[in-house]
């Protein structure tokens, strides 16, 4: 496994949620971890909003300087390149959505030649209903990012309304994508407290970005 991890996908596919969980899990295992917010498209719900929590857990957060954190400026912290080259750190790159967000990877390309690149899929998001459509997105985003996707991630979910069937449905479609593009599936994402054992490894996560749902 490479020390640098990149999460790509469409808007709202769950890249940030998975990046945070991925960083937390590896830090928990005793690894030195840095998480880089290189999202230049989203205006809310970015890694930088969880800076305090991540730092308290001993994770280095590479985000724009405090003064620019709430700006919609395409800023990438200069320290990212250093950490990508630092053999002591596992680096998680949370990339912005779609090809517009992924385009920033072009500037980091020479440091990412051996990186593990994950493509995150939620089949319950618009434009992701079929394997064909998802393959199209992967091709488009690979071109924009000048990078090859190494693994697929099934993150099919409906937030707190996720059922086993939703994850399973995602698994089936992602499996099809895997066959069509010859890209292996890394894992199914399953958020607490749901239980699911599928064909692929399960990556259990806690949802940090949710928390404003309507009380019944």
């Amino acid at each position: 496994m490479a020390k640098n991890k990149v999460f790509l996908g469409l808007y709202g596919s769950g890249k940030t949620e998975i990046s945070i969980n991925f960083a937390m899990k590896n830090r928990g295992d005793g690894t030195q971890v840095a998480i880089a917010d290189v999202d230049v498209t989203a205006s809310y719900f970015r890694v930088r909003e969880f800076k305090h929590m991540l730092e308290q857990n001993g994770i280095r957060v590479l985000a724009p300087a405090e003064a620019f954190m709430k700006a919609d400026l395409p800023l990438i912290d200069a320290s990212v390149i250093g950490y990508l080259q630092n053999p002591d750190y596992l680096v998680v790159l949370d990339v912005g959505g779609d090809e517009k967000g992924s385009i920033v990877l072009g500037s980091l390309k020479e440091y990412l030649s051996d990186a593990d690149v994950y493509f995150v899929v939620n089949v319950r998001r618009p434009f992701c209903e079929t394997a064909e459509k998802i393959c199209g997105h992967i091709e488009r985003i690979q071109r924009a990012a000048s990078i090859k996707v190494k693994y697929l991630v099934n993150n099919s979910n409906l937030a707190s309304q996720t059922t086993v069937d939703v994850v399973k449905e995602g698994e089936e479609i992602v499996k099809e994508v895997s066959k069509m593009m010859s890209i292996p599936v890394a894992f199914n994402v399953v958020a607490e407290p749901l239980e699911y054992k599928g064909e692929f490894e399960t990556f259990r996560i806690k949802r940090y970005l949710i928390g404003k749902e309507e009380p019944s």
Binding site: Y11, G12, R124, R125, P126, N157, L158, A159
Partner: peptide, 15 residues
């Protein structure tokens, strides 16, 4: 009817 995850902006567009 199948539920999907949408942002408010996207949902307004589809509606």
């Amino acid at each position: 009817m199948k539920k999907i995850m949408m942002k408010g902006t996207e949902a307004i567009g589809e509606a």
